[in-house]
Amino acid sequence: MNFLVLVKQVPDTEKVKIDPISGTMVREGLDVTMNPLDSHALELAVSLKEKLNGSVTVLSMGPMNTIDVLRDAIALGADRAILLSDSALAGSDTWATSLALAKAIEKLNIAFDLMICGEKSTDGETGQVGIELATLLDLPVVSYVSELIDLTENFVVVKRSVEDAHEVWKAPLPACLCVLKSVAEPRLPTLAGKKTAMDAKIEIYDTESIGINREEVGLKGSPTRVVKVFNTKIARNCRIYADKDILEGIERVVGLIKAVRDGEVG
């Protein structure tokens, strides 16, 4: 059984700094790490591979420092790591990213039974690339997968978590799963894994080697444009109840709650 896991590099920080003039993120001096949600997807693939044999390939698109993230994937049990990196790809939106990844998968003839993506990235938070890519590859998709129930040679059975219910779906292989955190708890890399990763070869391709026109991707090939970035202004006039006023504050909240609960206010 062969698995393909899509991973994205994100800044390894909790608190992003914003340049007050340009309104863009200060990336200088920031390390990159694997998008935390993708590490759950990778763990699912690696643990299934360990049970069923086969291989796990990780694929990413990003700047050259993404190599570090792919090495981490190897340390965590991936067998093959592919990076799509090219200045022409910079600024790609979700459509252009999906197109480039689809071309890479076709051109490099990456064989897989199951493609697994994290629900979304912690920086962009769009959650679109997995589904757009699967659509371009004409794969059946199950999104919001919370648990893998069964995987055989021909099909996969998963639990899907939606607003009002848990559903169980069966999809034929090859298929694409967009998974939630709960599918698997990522392991920590071991010393042996880290050593393997140090010597591992990361395959790197550019637009030319996957046969894609530079105009089709990157900023030029992206249907969407960011036209304005601005700071959010949040300010309310807070009435503070502290010290001896605390009980008065509690009474006020009780009054408000009663009014809303019993439907008296507007």
Binding site: T13, T33, L188, P189, T190, L191, K194, M198
Partner: peptide, 30 residues
Amino acid sequence: TREYIELGEKLMQMKALEVYIADSRTQRMK
């Protein structure tokens, strides 16, 4: 990387069952 591999190997020789290495923020926090 050089330092944690050196230290990790030493610990394995000193009867550690395993050495887990976290170098990303998420893993360190874990």
